[in-house]
Design a protein around this nucleic acid. Structure first.
Length: 265
DNA sequence: ATGACTTGTAATACAAGA
């Protein structure tokens, strides 16, 4: 049986309900992980989401910033929230499906403008968050599991994960320190980088194009900030991967586009 | 010059994104 899991930083779920319907109608993910919902739970547009065919909806949001949600076609075994960096800032949710598969949805801090933890508390927070993730995934329990970790990890770790590697080495999101922490996260859980499992390292692969420079998408000045990581136990089950680039060309788009994986399970 | 935009909140300006 094939299971489709998708992740999308939607940059305000209330601004993007039309796009969400178009994407779910066309691509029909069984599990859709969203980041930057930017809505507190009492204002979450639950009936709109249910009308798109998602009966089981989990959300963990706050006013203005951050916020994550997981939309599921079918009933799940359980759902959980983990507190990271001792902050209640709504950056994680997980579900365990009936078949035992665990799906963890993350929104890692962007890290502010200056890549120095001494000068910039936001960058320090990002580094700590990535370290905590690596420590969490190192649990020997993880290898016994079928686990998928997705989300906006806000790091483009490889040279071809950004449009200009040399130019961006000192930019937050592509510094060697962040790339190293991403590598440690993967090693720590022996996780497969699903995007790079399907697209070779020497080919550009992006999931985000900034708003500030208007032609960023047409010039393909992109970054791969959104990721799907999977335990080795799922390696032979990985069947297909897709970055749904064309959503970035829609009217008033999110700056991120969906990533999809199909798993035979 | 990734500058130049977009979002939410609240009050026409600011914080945050990355």
């Amino acid at each position: 049986m094939s299971l489709r899991i998708a992740t999308w930083n939607i940059n305000s779920i209330r601004q993007r309900l039309g796009h969400l319907k178009d994407f779910t109608d066309s691509h029909n993910p069984d599990v859709l992980c969203l980041q930057e919902t930017k809505v507190q739970d009492s204002e979450f547009p639950l009936s709109d989401i249910k009308s798109m065919g998602y009966e089981e909806v989990f959300f963990h949001g706050q006013k203005s910033y951050n916020g994550v949600a997981i939309l599921c076609k079918n009933a799940v075994e359980k759902n959980e929230k983990i507190v990271w960096c001792e902050k209640d800032d709504r950056r994680h949710l997980s579900v365990t499906l009936k078949n035992g598969l665990e799906v963890h949805n993350f929104y890692v801090p962007s890290g502010g403008p200056i890549p120095d933890p001494e000068q910039n508390d936001k960058f320090a927070h990002k580094l700590q968050f990535l370290k905590e993730m690596a420590k969490w995934v190192k649990n020997p329990d993880t290898k016994e599991k079928k686990l998928i970790l997705v989300g906006d990890l806000n790091v483009a770790p490889l040279e071809k994960d950004v449009w200009n590697h040399k130019k961006l080495l000192k930019s937050v999101g592509h510094t060697p320190l962040e790339s190293e922490l991403m590598a440690k996260l993967r090693k720590s859980g022996d996780l497969i980088d699903v995007g790079r499992h399907f697209v070779p390292d020497d080919q550009p692969l992006y999931s985000w194009w900034g708003y500030r420079y208007k032609p960023s998408f047409e010039k393909d000045y992109g970054w791969r900030l959104d990721h799907i990581l999977a335990t080795q136990s799922l390696k032979s089950a990985l069947k297909n991967f897709e970055v749904v680039r064309h959503t970035r060309g829609w009217e008033k788009p999110s700056d991120h586009v969906p990533n999809i994986v199909d798993i035979d399970i």
